[in-house]
Design a protein around this nucleic acid. Structure first.
Length: 429
RNA sequence: GGAGAAGUCGCGUAGCUGGUCGAGCGCGCACGAUUGGAAAUCGUGUAACCUGUAAAAGGGUUCGAGAGUUCGAAUCUCUCCUUCUCCGCCA
């Protein structure tokens, strides 16, 4: 959620920055300003009436004691009460429309981002070199099938398109990756948090997925009451960002550094393309997520830390990758800035995102009312929230088997995973 | 899932025959006094949000949530949520 004061005082600037993000928001923003003015005018008016009501009500016991006739006062107060009630209802209507519009506005992009979409994304650094093969490399679907790592067929049998099954060494490889990620984060002082995989609506609203992207998650039916339905989390960020919802932290509480492993569930409706076969895009995938809560002035440093951590994990596996600074319109709605770590997948002859690190600044904190107080101050301020994948396995495993394949069809296990797997090379049984 | 009890200011509690109760007390915490320093003691203070303002002052809302009764609700009524105890069921 954006700061209403900012919208009120810098309306044109807000509209321009949202435009950079590809959001034509003039009509919404202008309506918001209008509703805000209406709301405040009505509140002032109604509060004066409430003050009057309170004053008279305080006098009633005294009047009664003095034996005065209170009937005319009651009659007048009844009218006033009805009047106030009507105004409150009108204010509630205004606030409903106002909140809907406010919740629908995306975050402002940082001013140093290039405007526009994907085409303006800017690789800022590369690590390593693309793998050169002296034989015809196989794609990951074939490798995983041949080595018995992934059972695509039965995954589809069990749950339909977009699901797969890790088997044997494939399952152990997946688990080894998760262990490697988690152990690294623990060494960096992050707290491991295991969260529910089914979440309430407020979690999605705080993270910024709702109301706009309600159709991109899986909802669980529960009675008829929609508001109490739960949804399967699309990323652990959705849970971790709500951890401190409606809380006031102390300065000493910050920064908070969390990681969580969860499966992630996404509908991905209509997003299939031929080049995303196999495990690049599915309805369920595994991910370790990093989330930080910081003081506003510390979020830039925290952002660099998270990017560095994502890069270090990929580096540790020995992959060639690049880090890309996303243009304004390619950042997701809640985020002020995002860097992607992309790794080379030979069969796709291209780079695929394995980590996306973002700074939401105070956008999510405002939606979820996540605040803190500085030492010696009793003013509350919004925290900054950041998140990053660290990492998603579903893209790592394909890259791993493709980049590390040998001419005989076997796959070398990266050094950092050997202690978890107990073998150096994956071969056909 | 069935039966019962309860949800009040950071914590523990008082209030629940409706009106000086946004709310008493204790603890905690902050500041001050005292002290060579500390403990103890004494004093003062101790919510959030909205509105308002240059900043204040002032006003409003909030006693799990929502709705209702009433001139007026922490106190009465209804619905929901949560917690605890017992039973059932289990990992």
């Amino acid at each position: 959620m954006l700061d209403i004061k900012l919208i009120r005082e810098n309306t044109e600037d807000v509209i321009a920055r949202l435009a950079a993000k590809g959001k034509e928001a003039r009509s919404e923003v202008e309506r918001i300003v209008e509703l805000d003015a209406q709301r405040r005018a009505m509140i002032s008016e109604n509060e004066a009436k409430k003050a009057e009501q309170n004053k008279v009500n305080k006098d009633i016991p005294r009047l009664k004691k003095e034996g005065a006739d209170v009937a005319p006062v009651f009659a007048k107060m009844k009218e006033l009460a009805a009047d106030i009630k009507a105004n409150d209802a009108r204010i509630a209507e205004i606030e409903t429309e106002y909140n809907e519009l406010m919740l629908g506005l995306p975050n402002l992009p940082d001013t140093d981002l290039k405007p526009g979409g994907k085409e303006n994304n800017e690789p800022i650094r590369y690590f390593g070199e693309p793998h050169i093969f002296d034989f015809e490399p196989k794609n990951h679907v074939d490798i995983c099938t041949d080595l018995g790592l992934i059972d695509y067929k039965r995954g589809t049998k069990l749950s339909g398109n977009g699901f797969w099954i890790y088997r044997g060494m494939g399952a152990r490889l997946e688990w080894a990756l998760l262990n490697y990620f988690i152990d690294t984060h623990l060494a960096d002082g992050y707290e491991l948090v295991l969260v529910p995989h089914m979440l309430g609506y407020e979690c999605g609203q705080t993270a910024g997925q709702f109301p706009k992207f309600k159709d991109e998650v899986y909802w669980l039916e529960r009675d008829k009451e929609d508001e109490r339905r739960l949804f399967m989390l699309p990323t652990a960020e959705t849970a971790l960002v709500s951890l401190h919802r409606d809380e006031i932290l102390t300065e000493a509480d910050l920064p908070r550094k969390y990681i969580s492993y969860t499966p992630c569930f996404r509908r991905e409706a209509g997003s299939y393309r031929a080049d995303e076969r196999g495990m690049v895009r599915g309805h369920q995938f595994n991910k370790v997520e990093m989330v930080q809560y910081t003081k506003p002035e510390d979020s830039d440093a925290a952002f660099e830390e998270l990017v560095g951590k994502a890069e270090a994990l990929v580096k540790g596996l020995g992959f060639h990758f690049r880090t890309v600074k996303l243009a304004a319109a390619d950042c997701s709605a809640s985020m002020a800035r995002t860097y992607d770590v992309e790794i080379h997948i030979p069969s796709m002859d291209g780079y695929k995102e394995v980590s996306s690190v973002s700074n939401a600044r105070d956008y999510q904190a405002r939606r979820g009312s996540i605040r803190f107080k500085r030492d010696g101050s009793n003013k509350t301020e919004f925290v900054h929230t950041l998140n990053g994948s660290g990492l998603a396995t579903s893209r790592i495993l394909p890259a791993l088997v493709e980049q590390n394949q040998n001419a005989d069809g076997s796959v070398n296990v990266p050094d950092v995973l050997r202690k978890y797997l107990g073998v150096d090379v994956l071969r056909r049984d």
